[in-house]
């Protein structure tokens, strides 16, 4: 049963990490254009979306 003492915290930490990542995806607006993002990956663009010329 000693195993529980480190397995349970690890399990909970993994859950917390997943949740934090999910919060980050929500915050960075990754669910705002599901349709567009799904399609965008199929189009090979030969130019960057943002021009970093400065």
């Amino acid at each position: 049963m000693i195993a529980l003492l480190w397995l349970v915290p690890i399990a909970l930490c993994l859950g917390a990490v997943g949740l934090t990542l999910f919060f980050w995806t929500v915050k960075s607006g990754q669910y705002e254009d599901i349709k567009g993002d799904a399609a965008r990956i199929l189009h090979s663009e030969d130019h960057p979306i943002v021009h970093d010329d400065d």
Binding site: E32, D33, I34, K35, G36, A39, H47, I49, V50, H51
Partner: peptide, 15 residues
């Protein structure tokens, strides 16, 4: 993107 000085042109297909 072919227009001059365009920095971002991003379309949201859902909205």
């Amino acid at each position: 993107a072919t227009l001059p000085d365009i920095r971002i042109a991003r379309m949201n297909l859902s909205t």
